[in-house]
């Protein structure tokens, strides 16, 4: 299991080096958004309007953090289920989005869009929100404050731990990993 370090923005060159199963430590700015943010971005795209952020070479983290305690940059901040974003993801990838961090199976359409647009889907450990919060150095709301915990944010992260699930070559770590241990 290779451990790789990347800094954002996530260019095509950097994504080409990532393979399903790699451990990846991410440093730099990442976007943070989940269900309602995706819905709004998607609706703007459908209407041919501008997005509140440029998605080119960005990573979006599917996360709605808990409120920060005094002294914390962010509250607990683990991944949420990626499948709920599947409907919107291919359009965001086509718009330049490069990476996604979440947990759970993706649809075939998303897997195809990852290959087509040279993207990557990474997982962080679900339910390890307190541990992951320690790797977040800054947090700021970029848009949609009305959504509360679901607002569009940016995190500045340092060595944020993830693992590559779907790479741009069609690799699938959930399928590969589980195959090794299936006894049924």
């Amino acid at each position: 299991m290779a451990v790789k370090r990347i800094t954002t923005p996530l260019t095509e060159e950097k994504v080409a080096d990532l393979r399903a199963g790699d451990s990846v430590l991410i440093t730099g700015r990442i976007l943070v958004g989940r269900d309602q943010v995706h819905k709004r971005l998607y609706e703007l795209l459908q209407a041919g309007k501008d997005l509140p952020v440029d998605l080119t070479n960005e990573i979006i983290y599917y996360c709605g953090p808990s409120p920060a305690k005094p002294g914390q940059a962010a509250g607990s901040a683990g991944p949420t289920t990626a499948g709920r974003m599947d409907k919107y993801t291919p359009d965001l990838l086509a718009k330049g989005l490069r990476g996604m961090i979440g947990k759970g199976y993706r649809s075939q359409a998303v897997k195809d869009a990852i290959v087509e647009n040279k993207g990557v889907f990474l997982a962080s450990v679900g339910g390890a929100g307190a541990l992951l919060a320690k790797r977040i150095k800054e947090s700021r709301i970029l848009a949609y404050e009305d959504l509360g915990p679901e607002a569009l944010r940016e995190f500045i992260v340092e060595d944020f731990p993830t693992i590559v699930i779907h790479d741009m070559y069609g690799g699938d770590q959930y399928a590969e990993g589980q195959k090794l241990y299936r006894r049924a």
Binding site: K69, S76, A128, L131, L132
Partner: peptide, 16 residues
Amino acid sequence: ENARIAANEQVPMCQD
């Protein structure tokens, strides 16, 4: 380790 941090610092173990 996450559970240990949550208990020591009295922060939620998971954001949900």
